[in-house]
């Protein structure tokens, strides 16, 4: 670190190195180390316990290495069914949230009137609403209005309510970078509005649609607070994990945790690589 800061500091005369700065840099580095230890140590303990033969999850009481808890996972019907429910809900959420978010984003970016602030506030409000409130309102609405009891359907709708807002924000960011003249040019060349949308707008949005679908999928799979209220007597993988955590701990939960961690790390590495490429592209262009 000292080497890193010293080189540019020497190159830029305005950045005079001073002993005070070295000190604050050193303190900052120590703090960073502590912070990251705080972030990662508990996770490492959890991962370690997944491979411990001890029947209660523990990282300290080591009773030998085992993969038994992983082997048990596919045999646990509630986990397997929960995963099925999670995937079903996530698919539903993508199908709902992408068109909703896209419509909202198109209207908000293409309308030039001032009244859009109100519309914008309403459409992003689900993000700022506590998850359990979304679960509760969805559950009440569907039972009181249509007699639909809480279940997979209400969980899907409740999740889509706020995930659509995230999608909308992503689409808005993308649409604001689009040259609207492209759509006008296509129209001028005789394209019907539908063709303009299909050939110009959609291809431009496609990368964002894929990203939004991926994020929606993750958000849906991982959601607990909203789903917990809206799912009724059914369950998803995550609510099942939650109830296992509450009633009697099993290292199987740690085993699932390891799978989650591995998937997350892979996704994060892909994200980091994509970010690097994006930065390199920006620097080049």
């Amino acid at each position: 670190m000292t080497a890193e800061t010293a080189t540019p500091a020497a190159a830029v005369p305005a950045a005079r190195p001073s002993s005070g700065r070295d000190w604050s840099d050193a303190i900052l580095n120590v703090y960073l180390a502590v912070f990251f230890a705080y972030l990662f140590l508990p996770l490492l303990l959890m991962v370690a316990a997944a491979f411990n033969a001890s029947p209660t999850p523990s990282a300290t009481d080591w009773q030998g290495f085992t993969l038994e808890w992983f082997r048990q996972l596919p045999r646990d019907q509630r986990f397997v069914q929960g995963l099925g429910h999670s995937l079903l809900i996530a698919t539903g959420v993508i199908v709902l949230a992408i068109p909703l978010g896209l419509s909202g984003a198109l209207i908000l970016t293409r309308l030039r009137s001032r009244s859009t602030t109100t519309l914008y506030t309403i459409l992003v409000s689900p993000i700022l609403t506590p998850g359990i409130v979304l679960g509760v309102t969805t559950m009440i609405f569907w039972r009181d209005t249509f007699g639909v009891e809480a279940g997979l359907f209400t969980a899907t709708v409740a999740q889509a309510t706020f995930i659509a807002s995230y999608c909308m924000l992503m689409f808005m960011a993308r649409l604001q970078r689009q040259d609207r003249v492209l759509e006008e040019a296509a129209l001028d060349l005789g394209a019907s509005p539908v063709l303009v949308f299909r050939r110009i707008t959609l291809p431009f949005l496609m990368p964002t649609i894929l990203t939004a679908a991926f994020i929606s999928f993750l958000q849906s799979i991982e959601n607990y607070n909203t789903t917990f209220f809206a799912i009724g007597s059914s369950w998803t993988l995550v609510t099942e994990i939650g109830s296992r955590m509450r009633f009697g701990l099993s290292p199987m939960v740690n085993a699932i945790g390891v799978l989650f961690v591995v998937l997350t790390v892979i996704a994060a590495l892909i994200w980091a690589a994509a970010r690097r490429r994006e930065l390199a592209r920006l620097a080049a262009g």
Binding site: E222, Y224, V238, M245, L249, G257, F260
Partner: peptide
């Protein structure tokens, strides 16, 4: 990483 797992890691 899932919220529940972050919570769970602290229970341990």
């Amino acid at each position: 990483i899932n919220e529940l797992l972050r919570i769970f890691s602290w229970i341990m």
